[in-house]
């Protein structure tokens, strides 16, 4: 069984293997397919219409399936690799080891936000941004710029304490665990504010262009697992018959063969280190 670890605990060898697998998926074109899929969903998921990947109850099972698929591609390159998670309540600094030159590289330079250190810098020739919203072909970051704040552990704990998975109208206006975790409302704006804190492509619809996307969403996925352990009798909602929304046993696009019910128990696929 694959074990997903905190990125801060990875050995030098584990970091190198992950980076090499990411670079190989990029070289082969597989990586950019994931960026394209994410952007297509983020642009079409709407509060008043059909919504699957975001701003809806299926935000969590959709991203769980998306990460499993991506992790399987990494493992085709190197079977030892699993996705690590970034606990941004603990590793809160732009100088944390996550952003080291041996791992993800650091923030962008002030002139144009271009990342110039680490394996994903444009100058390496190995990380061109091909699926993009603007004309810049390089990875950008603006870590902690413009007053952006990462959520605190207290803010996360307050969201984990919410007992109801999701509520009508099942979108960005909902109360409940899912939308407070996604961050369209509530203290800390949890998941959304991490995208904003990183900046660059991470704050756009093509956010998977930055490899930190996977580590951010892996931690969101872990928080869902933690929440289920804390509230074992709280079900995924809604159960059935909801217009424009993925109910418990509805299939999710783009796979069309997987339901939220299939995604509830992550231990069928992987475990977390704690």
């Amino acid at each position: 069984m694959a074990v997903r670890k905190n990125q801060a605990t990875l050995t030098a060898t584990e970091k190198r293997n992950l980076v090499n697998a990411l670079l190989e998926l990029k070289r082969s074109g597989v990586y950019d397919g994931f960026v394209r899929t994410h952007n297509e969903f983020i642009m079409s998921d709407s509060d008043s219409g059909d919504r699957v990947g975001h701003r809806s109850p299926s935000f969590l099972p959709w991203h769980r399936r998306f990460l499993i698929q991506f992790e399987q591609e990494l493992q085709k390159v190197d079977a030892s690799v699993t996705l690590p998670y970034w606990d941004w309540t603990a590793d809160r600094s732009a100088t944390s080891s996550l952003w080291g030159a041996d791992f993800l590289g650091g923030t962008g330079r002030s002139r144009d936000s271009q990342v110039t250190t680490g394996p994903f810098a444009y100058s390496t020739g190995k990380w061109n941004i091909n699926v993009n919203v603007d004309s810049r072909p390089y990875l950008q970051r603006e870590l902690a710029a413009g007053g952006a704040q990462l959520p605190t552990r207290a803010q996360v704990d307050a969201v984990l304490a919410m007992t109801t998975y999701d509520m009508a109208p099942w979108n960005s206006a909902s109360d409940g665990f899912r939308n407070n975790l996604e961050g369209w409302r509530g203290q800390g704006r949890i998941h959304n504010s991490v995208h904003v804190w990183v900046g660059g492509q991470m704050s756009t619809g093509v956010s998977p262009n930055d490899p930190v996307f996977w580590m951010h969403h892996c931690f969101i996925d872990k928080l869902w697992a933690d929440w289920r352990r804390m509230h074992p009798t709280s079900p995924y909602l809604p159960a059935a018959g909801t217009t424009n929304v993925v109910d418990l046993n509805d299939t999710m696009r783009p796979w069309n063969n997987v339901t939220p019910a299939d995604m509830l128990d992550h231990t069928k696929f992987y475990t977390y280190d704690r």
Binding site: M43, D47, S172, W184, N192, V196, S207
Partner: peptide
């Protein structure tokens, strides 16, 4: 590409997580 949220706020494809 812009989108209106249920509470009336707006996002765009280049600021997709910040209303």
């Amino acid at each position: 590409h812009v989108m209106q949220n249920a509470d009336g706020t707006w996002i765009s494809v280049v600021n997709h997580y910040e209303p």
